[in-house]
Amino acid sequence: MPENPETLPIIRTVSELRAVVRGWRLQGLSVGLVPTMGALHAGHLTLVEEAKRRADRVVTSVFVNPTQFAAHEDLGTYPRQEAQDAALLTAAGGAVMFAPTVAEMYPAGFVTSVAVGDAARGGPSQGLEGEFRPAMFGGVAVVVSKLLNQVQADVAVFGEKDWQQLMVVRRMAADLDIPTEIVGSPTLRDDHGLALSSRNAYLSEAELAVARKLNVILRQAADQAAAKRPLAAVERDAYGAILKAGFDRVDYVVIRHADDLTPFAEGVVTGPARILVAAAIGRTRLIDNMAV
């Protein structure tokens, strides 16, 4: 039921969510899902808009998922602003906001995990974020599989900014025969080209000026890769340019096959490719990617 008559309904339990979706189904309506961790910004709202184009009703989940955070990461300080999120979703035309508690999503006795590949079998979860945040994709797979099962949506929309995550979710849905269509929505950027992210709120003004150089370096590297420059040289120069721009650390900057994130054996781009980066400035770790 609505917690504020001026905002869309906020649902806390799986049973109530399923009852609402069942009512829509009885009316012959299609259902879309936009999974988020809240602290919504314009980028999230473009996902809602995309889901609205593809479905009659859109459920937006707002849940900071503890299973994808390691002990040293920012679970406790991740921005939370539920009332503002609800107002933004109301303005965007969302149907309901699903904001469960941790106990609702992971009740006492919960022990199930979802594996999304390993060193022997490979898969898009290997390397990159899977190396630097080894707890992440298993946690993402659990919560996304639960949300897809809870909503049983016709379509679910994810942002392309988290490209590796999008590939992991697509692989998981295909492998587990989940019928929901998994759609990627292009990254929304600010006027300087910085990818919008909830974690951008951590940046100081000086750090923000540095962060806005990242997309410029990526685009230059992508153009060089598209022109068949050897990838080892492109990646090496991009790595140095990011540090020179003022970042404190570069975890990776690589150009990979777009769909499965495997390296190009030929050493140059020979098909659809993506350049992906993770770099830190101050206490903020930024990820970004773009097509080559």
Rank of each mutant, 00 (worst) to 15 (best):
P5Q: 14
P5W: 14
E6M: 11
E6Y: 12
P9N: 11
R12N: 06
L17M: 06
R22D: 15
G23S: 12
G23D: 12
W24P: 04
V31L: 08
G32E: 02
V34H: 01
M37A: 03
A39F: 04
H41V: 11
H41D: 10
G43C: 02
L47Y: 00
A51S: 10
R53Q: 14
D56L: 10
V58M: 07
V62M: 06
V64Q: 05
T67P: 03
Q68P: 00
Q68I: 00
E73D: 04
D74T: 00
D74N: 02
T77D: 08
P79T: 03
P79S: 05
A83N: 10
A83Y: 11
Q84S: 12
D85P: 01
L88Q: 14
A91D: 14
A92L: 09
A92C: 11
A95R: 07
V96M: 11
V96W: 14
V96I: 15
F98C: 11
F98L: 11
V102W: 04
E104V: 01
P107V: 03
F110A: 05
V114T: 11
A115F: 05
G117H: 05
G122F: 06
Q126E: 13
G127I: 03
A135W: 11
F137E: 01
G139S: 07
V140E: 04
A141G: 01
N149I: 01
Q150K: 08
D154K: 05
D154N: 14
A156L: 02
F158N: 00
D162T: 02
W163L: 09
R171F: 07
D175R: 14
D177C: 08
D177F: 13
I178M: 09
T180W: 00
E181T: 12
S185D: 09
R189A: 08
D191K: 15
H192Q: 14
L194R: 01
L194Y: 01
A195G: 07
S198R: 00
R199H: 04
E205D: 12
A211R: 03
R212V: 05
K213T: 15
K213S: 14
L214M: 15
L214F: 05
V216C: 06
V216H: 13
I217R: 07
Q220S: 10
Q224P: 00
K228P: 00
A232S: 15
A232N: 13
V234E: 09
E235S: 08
G240A: 14
K244G: 06
A245R: 08
G246H: 04
V250D: 01
D251Q: 01
V254T: 15
I255W: 06
A258M: 12
A258K: 15
D260A: 11
L261I: 05
T262S: 13
A265W: 10
G267V: 12
G267E: 13
V269N: 07
V277F: 06
V277W: 03
G282T: 02
G282K: 00
I287H: 03
I287L: 07
N289C: 07
M290T: 13
